[in-house]
């Protein structure tokens, strides 16, 4: 059980709040901008010859002696694609565990609001299609998704760009793509977002970082070893460089945020030691991710 029953109970009542229409043609629960035949009232307009008589509001006609046509929204389904970064860098500082909880929360929200939810765990560079589950909808799939999330491996060495490419080979359908990663990759993040956007998926970037990455406390001489590539880097007087590191980290976060916003997405960062309830029901709500 990744999340507590109380948290799950609150998540069941939450809905995604996409910035724009991110629906597929198939019918669903999301209202479109154009008219449709759902039960959701949209507007009135003057009757024009040839219009379907069934949509005339007879109550208004009886009062005004003038026919008005009653318009309804069109409701379409939205794909929710959850991509969880399973590279080795995620195993530091409890990042992957936090990412699993977030993935569980997002799939729960999607399944309980009848979205078409898919989840991909990207970790292996050599695998053709990343391990995935879905698309599926409905609350009865929640257990299945949780088990999948629990089983996702986090020892891969795949880059985010490569992983997204592999995901898009399998996935189809418009919607939102929630990428849960530390985004500390040598790959081109913007290109990944472009690929998603070109497939009708708005990139929702959620950066999970450990407290040591957010505020590194280093001093003296050190030899840094990249956990994925095993490349080493000698650092002298690391304490003196922390300020510059934080500056670059801030720039990276700003860039990811800009790239996501420019593609109808959103960005949020969190610490792996942050309280999950506070992040879900406070931070993400205030930032317009869910409602």
């Amino acid at each position: 059980m990744l999340l507590s029953p109380k948290t799950n109970g609150r998540l069941e009542r939450m809905r995604f709040n996409p910035r724009s229409r991110l629906t597929s043609r198939s019918r669903g629960d999301h209202l479109t901008g154009r008219g449709g035949n759902s039960t959701e009232f949209s507007d009135y307009r003057d009757y024009s010859p040839g219009d379907d008589m069934r949509f005339i509001d007879w109550n208004i006609f009886s009062r005004l002696q003038k026919p008005y046509l009653k318009l309804f929204h069109l409701e379409e389904e939205m794909n929710v694609l959850v991509i969880i970064d399973g590279s080795a860098s995620m195993k530091f500082g409890g990042k992957f565990e936090f990412a699993q909880k977030l993935a569980s929360a997002f799939t729960t929200i999607g399944l309980y609001s009848n979205e078409k939810v898919s989840i991909y765990g990207i970790n292996d560079e050599n695998a053709g299609i990343p391990s995935h589950l879905g698309p599926a909808s409905g609350r009865f799939n929640a257990q299945k998704f949780n088990r999948f999330i629990n089983d996702v491996d986090n020892s891969g060495n795949i880059t985010l760009e490569s992983g997204v490419e592999k995901v898009l080979k399998k996935h189809s359908g418009r919607g939102m793509a929630i990428i849960i990663s530390d985004f500390l990759t040598s790959g081109d993040i913007e290109k990944s977002f472009n690929l998603l956007f070109s497939k009708g998926l708005a990139p929702y970037a959620l950066q999970v970082l450990s407290p040591e990455e957010l505020n590194p406390e280093l001093s003296g001489d050190a030899r840094f070893v990249d956990c994925e590539t095993k490349v080493t880097l000698d650092i002298t007087a690391a304490g003196q460089l922390t300020e510059i590191y934080l500056e670059y980290l801030s720039n990276l976060q700003q860039n990811i945020s800009d790239w996501a916003r420019n593609r109808n997405g959103l960005y949020a960062e969190c610490s792996s030691e942050q309280d999950i309830d506070s992040f879900l029901f406070d931070t993400l709500v205030r930032r317009g991710w869910i409602k």
Binding site: A88, S89, M90, F92, G93, K95, D182, L184, T185, S186, S210, E213, L218, G220, D221, A222, R223, F224, V225, D226, C227, E228, T229, V231, L233, D234, I235, L241, I244, Y245, Y248, L249, L252
Partner: peptide, 21 residues
């Protein structure tokens, strides 16, 4: 040097290429 395994060298490589460093 103290051998420290870190998630990624991306940011540190950028730091070391900074003109100030």
């Amino acid at each position: 040097r103290q051998r420290v395994e870190i998630p990624s060298l991306v940011l540190w490589q950028q730091v070391l290429q900074d003109s100030r460093v």
